[in-house]
Computed example of a mutant assay.
Amino acid sequence: MVFSPMSLPQELFVHEIDHAVVYGDAEKETILHEGSVRILGNGWVEVSSGRLFSPNAIHHIDDER
């Protein structure tokens, strides 16, 4: 059986991190957000203020547990 990514509920692919740092570059000089984040199934990242970051804007996310 084959599934289209659009046919599956996006809630199945959500990853939440309570304490994260979202970086825009590899050198860790550009911090886009510090705090809780939700990584959505489509690759977009939702921060605690409700703002969404495109996967293209983010270099990496560090989990600060």
Rank of each mutant, 00 (worst) to 15 (best):
A57G: 06
D25L: 00
V22I: 06
T30C: 08
L12T: 06
D18P: 02
R51K: 13
S7Y: 02
A57Q: 09
N56T: 04
H60Y: 07
V14P: 00
H19E: 09
I61K: 05
G41Q: 05
S36M: 10
G41A: 13
N56W: 00
E46R: 15
G43T: 08
I17N: 00
A20V: 05
H15V: 08
F3K: 09
K28V: 06
P5K: 01
S7W: 00
I31P: 14
L32V: 11
M6Y: 13
I61F: 04
D25A: 07
M6T: 10
S36E: 15
R65P: 01
V45D: 09
T30F: 01
A26T: 13
V2H: 10
V21Y: 06
S54A: 07
I39R: 04
V21S: 10
M1A: 10
N42H: 12
Y23A: 08
D62G: 02
I39Q: 03
N56V: 01
V37K: 06
R51N: 03
E34R: 06
A57V: 09
G35C: 01
N56Q: 02
H59S: 14
S4Q: 02
P9E: 15
I31V: 15
S36G: 01
A57H: 03
H60N: 11
E64R: 12
E11V: 06
G24R: 02
N56I: 00
E16K: 04
G50E: 15
V45F: 02
S7I: 14
H33W: 15
Q10P: 09
F53A: 08
M1C: 07
E46D: 10
L8N: 14
L40T: 03
T30G: 03
E27M: 12
T30L: 02
R51H: 10
A20N: 05
D63L: 11
E46I: 01
G35T: 01
E29T: 01
I39G: 06
S49E: 11
M1F: 13
V47A: 01
L52I: 11
E11C: 08
D63T: 11
E16P: 03
V2G: 10
V14L: 07
G43V: 13
S7G: 11
M6L: 12
R51W: 12
P9N: 09
D62F: 07
E11W: 09
S54E: 01
D63G: 11
G50H: 13
G43D: 09
G35H: 02
E11P: 00
I31D: 05
M1T: 09
S49P: 00
V14N: 04
A20Q: 07
I17V: 14
A57E: 09
L52R: 13
S48D: 10
I58D: 06
R38F: 00
V21T: 12
W44S: 13
G43M: 03
P55K: 01
F13S: 12
F53E: 07
P55Q: 01
L12F: 14
V47M: 02
S4K: 03
M6Q: 11
E34G: 03
R38L: 08
G43A: 08
L32S: 07
L8S: 14
L8T: 14
P9W: 05
I61E: 05
E46H: 06
F53I: 07
F3M: 07
F13H: 10
I58C: 03
R65Q: 13
V37I: 15
L32H: 12
A20K: 10
E46V: 06
G41D: 04
R51G: 09
